[in-house]
Write a protein that binds this DNA or RNA. Structure first.
Lengths: 97, 97
DNA sequence: ACAATAGGAAAGTGACGACTTACCTATCAA
DNA sequence: TTGATAGGTAAGTCGTCACTTTCCTATTGT
C-alpha cells in the first residue's frame, strides 16, 4: 500500500537505513546498527533499528532472507517508482475511474 | 528540506490535496475543501485543510499566489524528483533481485 | 552441554502531529 | 457602512509513533 510506503519514508532513521542498503546490500541488523552509529552518529538501540526494519519490510522497501542465525536485508526500490508516477505523470492511468 | 517533503507526504489528506491539484491547478482553499468533501468524503474543517496547505507550501510542493481575497494554489513537483533519485540507482539493470 | 551471538516480542513513556473550536483580519458587493 | 465571503491564527484534545527497557527464542562455536 502507498500508505505504508509514505509512512515508512517519513522517518529520518529509516531513510538512513535505506541509504546504507543502497551503499551495501544484504546487511544484517547488527551491521546496520554499527554503520549507523559510526557513520551517522546515531545512538539508537538494536531493538529500535529492528523495529524500523519491520516497518521498511512491511512497506516492501526492504526484503529479508534468513540464513542460519543471520538475517540479511536487501533494498527493494520497486515501491518507490510507483509513488512517484502519482504526481509526476498527470496523464497516467489512475485507479480512480 | 527533504525532511519537510517526506513529512508532508506522510499524511493521506495532504496526498489527496496533491491529487486534486494535479487534476486542476490553481484552486482556492474553499474549492479544495469542497472537492475533498464531495469526491473523497472527507469531512474536515476548512481550518484543517488550511493547515495542510501550509505544510505543503513549506515543503515546496505547493506554490500560492494571492489575488484580492482569493489565494490560488499550484502544484510544484520539483521536490518530488529530488527525493526519488536518492535510492533509485541510475545504472542498475532491470531484473536485478 | 554451555555460553556467546543474532534476532524477536512484549509494555511503558514522551513527544509530535492532526484536528476542532473559537476568534480575528482582509476584501468585495449592496 | 453593513454584511457576506475568503482566509489566518491560537489553544486544547486525542491518538499515534519512536524509543527504551526487559525478557525471550534460535543458532553457532568450543
Amino acid at each position: 500500500m502507498a500508505e505504508d510506503v509514505f509512512k515508512a519514508l517519513a522517518d529520518p532513521t529509516r531513510r538512513r537505513i535505506l541509504d546504507e542498503l543502497v551503499e551495501r546490500d544484504g546487511q544484517t541488523l547488527f551491521e546496520i546498527c554499527a554503520r549507523l552509529a559510526t557513520k551517522h552518529g546515531l545512538g539508537l538501540t538494536r531493538q529500535a533499528i529492528g523495529q524500523h526494519l519491520v516497518v521498511l519490510e512491511s512497506a516492501g522497501l526492504v526484503r529479508s532472507r534468513r540464513q542460519g542465525r543471520y538475517k540479511f536485508h536487501d533494498l527493494n526500490t520497486e515501491p518507490l517508482e510507483l509513488i512517484v508516477t502519482r504526481w509526476l505523470r498527470p496523464d497516467a492511468p489512475e485507479g480512480t475511474p
